[in-house]
Amino acid sequence: MKSFTYERARNPAEAAASVLRKPDAKFIAGGTNLLDLMKLEIETPAHLIDVNGLALDKIEPTAEGGLRIGALVRNTDLAADSRVRRDYAVLSRALLAGASGQLRNKATTAGNLLQRTRCPYFYDTNQPCNKRRPGSGCAAIGGFSRQHAVVGGSEACIATHPSDMAVGMRALDATVETVRPDGATRAIPIAEFHHLPGSTPHVETALSPGELITAVTLPKPVGGTHIYRKVRDRASYAFALVSVAAIVQRDGTGRVALGGVAHKPWRIESADSQLPRGAKAVMAELLSGARPTRENAFKLSLAERTLGAVLTEAKG
């Protein structure tokens, strides 16, 4: 771990401004991912700006009938919120499928969105990784790729985004609210928030330098049956091989997003429209153009079978 300086920010604009003054600075909230990465020198910030004191820890109704989730709301609190459980159950279930109780107590909403891939080659600094050292190559391609992306990958990177929460938010059409160092705010649709790897897998999100997430907003509830089904090798504390976030209405229409298959939560709105025709029809569109490796080709049929089971469950 490299030595670093540390400050506690008092308000969002100050935090954003401070990070811009110190080029190698990073924000820290729960630290459940960043500190591990710093110990391995995968992340080497020279300065940490602790944002835990920014009072962004409320869940409030929005004027549009939705919910505004502060960036610092802990995963445990978000999953347990009665409004989330009632109106956005897919999010609550996704959160509870992730990590462990101890981690969820510490992990924040914004931090969860920004967690980095769990690709083992990313974690081993002896190995080439375009995400960690741009231009060095990708060891996962041709290597151990069972957990990796089957769709949306590139010649440079086949890592997946590990979050469950983000998959639930993608199904809910959440919006990420930010503030920039100059005080300007913007709202980024979750669909545009995470990037595909392309030739720049180290550029993972739409955030510009110094930009700070302040909240995630959920639109007005859409009703329906909310299911989050996470498939993994052990019953707890494991990243998804495939996960399915689904909201299914009584008439069979709805939305579906996948985790564990791509560099970002994976949803294609036109595939949603296939839901009444069943899992096969959805996946034909959602996973079209998939380029799995020999080791993870099973994810294609696994995703389809899992969605099939989810749709059966939704019919009740």
């Binding site: 769990r118 083992p120 080659y121 974690y123 081993d124 190995q127 060891a139 041709g142 290597g143 151990f144 090798d233 052990r234 019953a235 707890s236 504390y237 494991a238 990243f239």
Partner: peptide
Amino acid sequence: DKRTGFFVNHDLAAYEVPVHAD
């Protein structure tokens, strides 16, 4: 990793052992 000769999943996140729920 048969190309370079090492155990790839060399931490407790990637080398899974049963947890209580299992």
